[in-house]
Every structure is written in C-alpha cells, then in structure tokens.
Design a protein around this nucleic acid. Sequence first.
DNA 1: ATGTTTTTGATTGAAATTAACCGCTTTCAC
DNA 2: GTGAAAGCGGTTAATTTCAATCAAAAACAT
Lengths: 251, 251
Amino acid sequence: MLTAERHDYILNKLRETGIVRLQELVNELNCSESTIRRDLTYLETKGLLKRIHGGAKRLYTVEEELTIKQKSVKNVHEKQLIGKLAASLVTDQDVIFIDAGTTTLEMIQYLPMKKDITVVTNGIHQATLLTDLGIRTYLVGGRLKNTTKAIIGASAIAQIRSYQFNKCFLGINGIDTEFGFTTPDPEEAAVKHAALRQSAHPFFLADYSKFEKVNFAKVCDLDDAAIITAGINEKNRSRYQKFTTVLEAKE
Amino acid sequence: MLTAERHDYILNKLRETGIVRLQELVNELNCSESTIRRDLTYLETKGLLKRIHGGAKRLYTVEEELTIKQKSVKNVHEKQLIGKLAASLVTDQDVIFIDAGTTTLEMIQYLPMKKDITVVTNGIHQATLLTDLGIRTYLVGGRLKNTTKAIIGASAIAQIRSYQFNKCFLGINGIDTEFGFTTPDPEEAAVKHAALRQSAHPFFLADYSKFEKVNFAKVCDLDDAAIITAGINEKNRSRYQKFTTVLEAKE
DNA sequence: ATGTTTTTGATTGAAATTAACCGCTTTCAC
DNA sequence: GTGAAAGCGGTTAATTTCAATCAAAAACAT
C-alpha cells in the first residue's frame, strides 16, 4: 500500500462520511497506527482535513463564502427559515430544479449533502455554490441576464423541457388570488413555467412581502404549485390556503 | 522490449489504475529497476505522471487539487499581454467562443466593448464578467465541473455544435510537437475540440510554461489552430513556427 | 570491422518509510 | 473525583526505496 493510495482513500472516505476514525483506518488500510497518524498530520498541514481526537474531520471553507454573499439581501431571517424547510423536502435520489434568485440561494446550504441528489439550475450563483458543496450540478444553457445572473431564453427552455424533475423550487415576486404567481420579466416567467411543467412537485419560495403583489408576467395559477413561506400573517394564510398548499417555516 | 513500448504500457496502466508500483512494473515488463526508474523520471519531465515513493501516480488528480484561484497567480503579466493581443483580434459583429480558464479570463477586460459582439462561453467566471461589462453573453449548458467551474459533457458539446463562431479563444495546458495540444481532462478536451470545429479562426492562448508539456487528453494537432503566447524563448519560437502560426505578445 | 552513441543492468551509500515501543494526556464510565 | 481505556507525539531500528555511478550490451554510423 503506497502512501498516495492511503491519502486518496482517507480523503475519499472523508468526503463521503465527513469523519474518519483512526482505528478504522488502521484496520481498513492494514497498516500501523503510527502510519495513519503521520498521514493525518501530513494531510492537515496540506489543509485537506482537520484532525480531531480519535481521527479527523472534513473542513468547510464554503460556509465562510456564504456569509459574504448573503449581505445586501432583505428579509434574511425569513429566507433562511424558508430555505431550511425547502431543503428538508429533498430526499435521496431526487432530481430537482432550483431557480435563480436570492431566496432559492438560501436553501442550498441546507441540502442533504450526503445523499445522492442531482440539481439543475439556471442561476450562476446557485451553480457555483452547489458544486462547491460537492453536489452534482447541471447548469442550463442560454442567454445570461445581466441584472439577476439568471439564464433565460428559448435555448434554456428547450433544455429544461428535456429533463424530468421530482421537485422544483422557484423564486417569485408576486402572489395574488386573482392573478396567481407573477414576476417582472416575461422571459424569466417562461423559464419558471417550463421548469414547473416538468416537475412532479413544484414549489414557490416566497417571504411574506410577496403576498398580495402583482407583477407584469404571469407564471401560473395559484393551484398549480405549493407555497413555502415564513412570517406570513394570519389573514393571508387563511386566504391562500383555500387555493393551494401553504407550508409555513417556523423557528 | 523497446523504450516506447514500456512508456505506453506504463501510461496505459496508469490510466486504468491511477497508480503504479515500481516493483510491479519490473516484473511485468521484465527489465531492471534502473530502467523503470529512468522511464518514470522521463515521463515525469514530460508532464505525463507524478512520481511518488514506490512508483508513480496519475497527474490528473493533482491538477484537480489546484483551485482556480491558486492557478491565477502564476505568470500574470504574460497572461495580460496575451489577453490584450487576443482581444485586439476581435472585430465588430464578431460571434466568438471563449473557453473557461484563467488565461482567457484576462482577455475579457480588453474586449472592444463599444462594438457589437456576441460571446459564447463555457466558463462561469467568464460569463459573469462578460455580462458585468454589458456584453451579450450566452452560457453553454451542461454539467458543471467543480474545480475549474467549466461546463462540460455531452449536452454542452451538442449546444456548441449548433453555433458558428468567427473566432474561438481556448486555454490549453500542454503544447508539444509530437502530441499537439493537450489538457488533463478528456471531457474538457472534447468541449475545446467541439468549439474549435465550429470556428473559422481558432486560437490557443498559452504562456511560455505550456510549451514542451504533454497532458492526458489530446484536443487537436498543432496545425489545427494558431497560438497566442508571450515570453516564449527563441528555441521554442522557431521550433513551433514550423508547424503553425505563433503570435507573440510584446509590451 | 571499428569506433561512437544509446540503452541497459548492477552496485552503492543516502534518504524515506515503516512498525513497534515509550511515557504522557485526554476521555469516559462509575 | 478516580481509575481504566483510548489516544497522543516522539524516538528507534529495520526495511524499502531512491539517485548516482559505472561498466556491459546493444544499436548505430562510418
């Protein structure tokens, strides 16, 4: 057993389980305690893991990057609650679509990393974060919109139509009993609509500020998708529950 | 057993198993330890493998460990010169492809912004920067590679095939008179090849450190594309000018 | 055939890697 | 708290692997 082989083995195991025990490695790699200790010490100096009593754990630098990007976003707390709830709906083997936008960005950090999931997205930031977390990610191709860094256009829609999703998680700007789900840009609306059509269980992520608002382009009717929200008032909750499922995230 | 035969055997075995033991090779190739050592040393100087204690391993995994941020510090000055020259080749109404990678990233800031150009890219960073500069940008869709933030895979290639480019600007890891243009990841090589096929005028951007290097996956032969470089020495310039156009960027 | 260059194999001391041992610290159950 | 068990770093000696050297063998040109 060569040194590099052991190192690969350790790092791979760490990637999967998040933590490794020294004694386990001694058995599995069939070598002495000293050798494993030396390996762990070396890999720590390389910045590839963090040693802990009895073994080593994987380190996350990604979380630090997250906090930087989160600034300049309104209703952060509600969005985090929504993100956590949305992520909890994702199960093993799922193939999901995640829309561009700040609200959907929040859910990514809570995704079940250990499970085998595939994510398709049209958001640049979403895609970057997802791969950083080691999740299998597909980015939809097409024209890149300057302001929102979302991919839109006919090519994007065509590509989305070639997939089938278990669930999709979409951002939205306006929710209204009469006009349904609406957003300012017709092209973004078209992309959302396409993703929704390909999904067995579509969800809209929206904090309380999005209710009773109407925007230019309609995505779909209220009863076409469920709503995941937080901080909603009693009046709106009872009103919108008549039309569709409203999942409310709590502390 | 000829030298070239042994080299092929070693590289093939390395391709399959990712790691080779020196003693194994001695038995399998039926020659002395010294000979194998010599082979391994030579192949390492050619950049085809990484020697380790007791044998050798694939270079491919090592390259992955280098993040894009670590790479971008090397040869910055040369890359800027190259970028400036490359950008000066772009003219009004051009539809161009820009590859992922740090070298191509440098050329974007010099692009003629006032002119009407369209850019297609498979690099996340490239796409972000291009839209920030107000350039009409299309991002190719497909699987997102974690380490280089490049989009690869069959879907990306299919999409590239549906376009026609006036010019394409590709990054590259190895340039060699015998093996042509090479890069570590076969999937990235396939994307580069596809873009090159759709381009009237393909260019490779490479600083001096890329010459006389060979990587795992071949993109094309030397005479299939022009080279834009900087800081190249006299010997390499005269050698490579025999095979293809070499544009050298100066202060 | 002769001399030259290239390739190969064997030998060497140096360097790297390893397992085992030691005394010490941390952790955990009671 | 207290003792046992597990985990820790450091040292040691044996083993393996390494690079360098040199001479034999093979390939080559003249």
